[in-house]
Write a protein that binds this DNA or RNA. Structure first.
Length: 478
DNA sequence: CGTCTTTGACCAGCGC
DNA sequence: GCGCTGGTCAAAGACG
């Protein structure tokens, strides 16, 4: 009898706990839906803003950029990072994105094959790659990029342009792209005409780097990759692996995968090029994220006043950035604008130990994200910083991988607008201390719960996996 | 047997 | 011009 009573008591306790968890879940859902609705309204607003600023931005960019002074050299500390002095947009996603697939190979190959239920965002068919748009201005980002790229007529391809680098190109046309000018067999196989060559060459200029805390050899990003090389790069004992996209026969997109020297659990994946095919859903989701950072970069360079500072090698610390996370950094040296979103560690510690941060600390101006940014743009990307700081929140991941949650249909438009707005704000506010976005107690509580409760973490891990890519998750479970 | 990874070699860019 | 470095190629081996 005592046993019965005890068991009943335990059962009741468990039920009560379940109820609490459910309530928590409901709260999270409500928060997410709020964020989604805010995002949608903001998206509309941002689109308007983009259109308004498009002409002005392009004109200003045309006027200003050619007279951009000789690019400031990046300090040695900044150059020591593994990616060298190319145009670089760096994203770091701190989720434990891979849920258990033993080998990167499995992740790479299987993740694109599933994905039966596609969200509207998935159908948006973002391209993961970066391309230098043939014209300046925000128009290169999403607005009518279908015409701009020509690489993927069926899909709106996000062309990301760095006006600073483009200005360099314009001023010094003889300067070859930093990335090799050698034609790969696949690229030169005759499938690409002159326009494609141009797009490809341009696209090789810009990159998107994603940092993920990941145990496997590569990050499951939804695409299929074939490894074609490996190198030991200077300054990093970990070898850098080179992958080529094999989703389509002549896809020019490549990626480099390397572990971070200071923390080998962190995987740095650098994407380069524009996909010439439709992306799997999971890849589209990732594309949305990389597009966000790249759009920030692009927008920054097209915002006249901001571009001036960007082109001078200034660093923007976007801590508490609503757009990309608590440790997002945009930095440029010469034609090397860099956005670093580092969610691989709680808080911003990683940011401050990164070479970019070191570079900033070495005397380069650092601008913090205005609090208004994170508070005013929580609609979509601007989840509360605590979400990001704890990197396991479904809401945060929903925004990190928003495409899979069906939030943005054309995320790149929002990102461009967000970036534009941010940079304008950053410029107007100046170097205010952007860490001032104080998390509400609710999110703090949630964050603590997330980080302290292992069971919750496991649930979140599953959510992360599903959000990262249903296909990848399905493959990982095999 | 086909596909993929590994790995040494080659090439181009860049700095000195 | 030379050496260093990053990026790519391609032959050989591994794997299913």
């Amino acid at each position: 009898m005592c046993y019965m009573l005890q068991e009943e008591r335990k059962l009741e306790e468990a039920k009560a706990e379940m109820g609490e968890v459910r309530e928590e879940n409901e709260r999270l859902k409500a928060m997410l839906s709020r964020i989604v609705s805010q995002y949608q309204s903001l998206q509309m607003h941002f689109l308007d803003v983009v259109k308004v600023h498009e002409h002005a931005a392009s004109k200003q960019a045309d006027n200003k950029l050619p007279v951009t002074p000789a690019p400031a050299k990046q300090p040695p500390g900044a150059a020591e990072d593994d990616d060298g002095p190319d145009d670089l947009v760096s994203l770091s996603l701190g989720s434990r994105a891979n849920s258990g697939g033993a080998r990167g190979k499995g992740h790479e190959r299987s993740s694109s094959s599933s994905g039966t239920a596609e969200t509207a965002a998935d159908e948006g068919q973002l391209s993961l790659g970066l391309g230098i748009a043939p014209r300046s201005g925000l128009s290169s980002v999403g607005v009518d990029d279908d015409k701009a790229t020509g690489a993927s007529p069926a899909a709106p391809v996000l062309n990301l342009s760095s006006d600073s680098s483009r200005a360099d190109d314009a001023a010094k046309p003889a300067q070859a792209p930093t990335v090799t000018t050698r034609k790969s067999p696949s690229a030169g196989a005759g499938a690409a005409d002159g326009a494609d060559d141009e797009v490809q060459q341009q696209s090789k200029k810009a990159r998107v780097s994603v940092r993920v805390k990941c145990d496997t050899a590569t990050m499951p990003d939804g695409c299929q990759w074939r490894k074609y090389g490996q190198k030991i790069s200077k300054g990093n004992p970990c070898p850098r692996a080179y992958y080529r996209c094999t989703v389509a026969p002549h896809c020019p997109v490549r990626k480099q995968v390397q572990r971070w020297a200071e923390d080998t659990s962190i995987l740095i994946t650098t994407y380069e090029g524009v996909h010439n095919h439709q992306l799997p859903p999971a890849a589209s989701a990732m594309a949305a994220r990389t597009s966000a950072a790249a759009a920030m970069l692009t927008s920054g360079s097209t915002t006249s006043s901001s571009s001036a500072s960007l082109a001078h090698g200034h660093h923007f610390t976007l801590a508490a950035a609503g757009l990309l996370g608590p440790t997002t950094m945009v930095s440029t040296a010469a034609s090397c604008p860099t956005v670093t979103l580092d969610l691989t560690a709680p808080g911003t510690s990683l940011l401050h130990t990164s070479p970019y941060a070191a570079a900033a600390a070495a005397g380069y101006e650092t601008k913090a994200m205005p609090a208004a940014w994170s508070s005013g743009y929580l609609g979509y990307g601007g989840a509360h910083p605590s979400y990001y700081a704890n990197k396991s929140s479904p809401a945060a991941l929903g925004q990190l991988f928003g495409g899979s949650l069906g939030v943005p249909s054309r995320p790149e438009q929002l990102y461009a607008a967000q970036a534009q707005s941010y940079l304008q704000r950053a410029n107007s506010v100046g170097g205010g201390s952007g860490h001032g976005a104080v998390p509400p107690a609710v999110t703090d509580t949630l964050a603590k719960a997330i980080t302290s409760d292992p069971s919750f973490q496991s649930v979140l891990a599953a959510a992360i996996t599903s959000v990262m890519g249903r296909g990848g998750a399905a493959a990982a479970q095999k």
